[in-house]
Amino acid sequence: MTRVEPGPWRYFASRVVTAAFIVVGAITLLFVLTQLVRGNPAEVLLGPRATAEAVAEFARRMGLDLPVHERLLQFFGQVIRGDFGVDIISGRPILDMVLEVMPFTLALTFSAIALAFLIGVPLGCYAATHPNGVGDRIAAVLSVGLISMPSFVVSIYLLLVFSIWLQWLPVLGAGGSGGILDQLTRLVLPTSALAIGWIGYVARLTRSSMVETLAEPYIRTSRAYGLAESKIIYKYALKNACLPTLAVLGLGTGRLFGEAVFAEVIFARPGLGTLIYTGISTRNYPVVQAGVFAIVLLFAMANLATDMAYAWVDPRIRAGLRGTSAGRR
């Protein structure tokens, strides 16, 4: 039996507790804001022609006459049981609607991250090992340009080029009924749209940390020992150079979830983004709320996973010698 070190577990526990607090805080903030701004939901739901008695009766039945903090507790109870209520429009449980579309959003964001890393890291390595060369210059200009282009512009451009000009249809929808190959085909454009900006970002980040790492004494030592350059770069330097890139991953998922809204709307894919968007357009607030909570929860979990991965890769963090708090976006 292996002995469990106290360090990593304590670190893990403290991260989990923090994440839980943050999620609870986020839910509270949204709930309180809703109560403050939107006024009495009974009046809103029943419309302007409802009598005062009807509003009072409805409010009593729904527990809306309770003070805000009691309603908040009630609401948390429902959230923990996974009870987000029933959608007024479709008559289905809102939780089912969220769980049904979540895999689409996860597939989209994860494939975008994977693509960004698969292309961005080698690109950054190449630029770092050929500093100020033609490739490095082109990569620098390209990555700044790509970062500056908002993902929804990229999405529309891709749609324009591939569906209108080249007619490589079909690109819209998720292809739920068409089998795995069809689903993958329809994932290509939205994934690329999300990944393109990140490729530039990851490449820039990898380049700068790779340049820094290559100046370290242990690299010089490895060179003096006559190790092959490719081994030095890809076996020793890359591991350390990847750390800052890993750190942006968790925060990056947050931005990706936001950008995914546009990709989903533009490519008419089902997903949490489409759910929130149609919820806003149809003033279906409970659905919006549930969708936003799902994303906040996913974002918190992604951050947690990043912290864990970071601590796993870099023992200094486990020992509490360094923090992971990079500049948050």
Partner: peptide, 21 residues
């Protein structure tokens, strides 16, 4: 605590939630 909570929302998602409200 307020800052931490605001950071727990992805930018655009927070903006969308506020639009809904």
């Amino acid at each position: 605590i307020l800052f931490d909570i605001l950071y727990s929302f992805p930018n655009l998602i927070f903006a969308l939630a506020l639009v809904a409200i």
